[in-house]
Design a binder for these strands. Structure first.
Lengths: 144, 144
DNA sequence: CTCAGATAGACAACTAGGTTGTCTGATCGT
DNA sequence: ACGATCAGACAACCTAGTTGTCTATCTGAG
């Protein structure tokens, strides 16, 4: 028995996240994107969404720019992003998502959305909205 | 804009988990338990809850017994558990939570429960039950 | 116009938390 | 009584992050 309801809630949150990610990663692997991890998928989505260099990506993901640079190096090796020098700022390397990268993020987003939709079918759409609102409160983590 | 509602849900789940854990870890640090991570707290709770050796702990936490053994080594170094040979089975090293360990799990559980209670006050107790039930469905991850 | 300070990125060393594989020794079931 | 299973130790490795240091470049206030 996991006697603390609070700890049980935390376990549930992590379990739900892990279940979603595991299924998305498995689907990506089946559809021609082996070796993609949740970190890589989220990073690529952030790049596609406007994080155009390593520093910006680090800020967006809440990690150091060095960590972001490592993730970018992996994404580049796997052919998901392309880096080129910014003619307007010699310090920057501007990131561009490749067509293979767009394929990967499209599959990832579609699978995440499908999981959410199936879950919505199971628990009811009104519950989904309630859960998401309640989770936002919890994630906000207002300190005493 | 994080345009995929599914990915946004996953981010929300992880964000809620991280917010809870960060506050519990900060509280543990303030109350005389610096250096305690979420992994250590969850492992110690599982040991206290009956996972009496490394293999059992690994099974309980869903990790390899080698990973569990490393966590136990850290817990032992920090004075949270004590290992001794099982007179009935010479292969086993039986785990026992020390009094300092009991102090740590008590603080951790209290803080997790307090966070859940404050959240319950904010969103309403009936929502909490709905969210937990819905999360259990999601975490179950029924495959297509 | 200059120069101090902020910023982008590269490189290195380190940590946490996990993995797989191999090995020894102890126990259990048929 | 012996083969299969199980507990644990040890090693090598991986991912994803950290901090610190360094250089090059850009920017804004005097």
């Amino acid at each position: 028995m996991d006697s603390s309801p609070g700890a049980r809630l935390a376990t549930l949150l992590l379990g739900a996240f892990d279940a979603m990610v595991a299924q998305v990663v498995a689907d990506l692997e089946e559809r021609g994107h082996p070796g993609v991890t949740a970190t890589l998928e989220f990073a690529l989505a952030a790049i596609a969404d406007g994080a155009q260099d390593a520093s910006a990506l680090g800020r967006r993901l809440g990690v150091s720019k060095q960590a972001a640079a490592k993730t970018i190096a992996t994404l580049e090796q796997l052919g998901y992003v392309h880096r080129e020098s910014d003619p307007k700022d010699a310090r920057r390397k501007v990131l561009a998502v490749t067509s293979r990268g767009r394929d990967m993020t499209a599959i990832g987003a579609a699978r995440f959305d499908e999981l959410r939709r199936r879950w919505s079918d199971a628990v009811g759409p009104e519950r989904v909205a309630q859960v998401e609102a309640a989770l936002a409160v919890l994630a906000d983590g207002e300190r005493p």
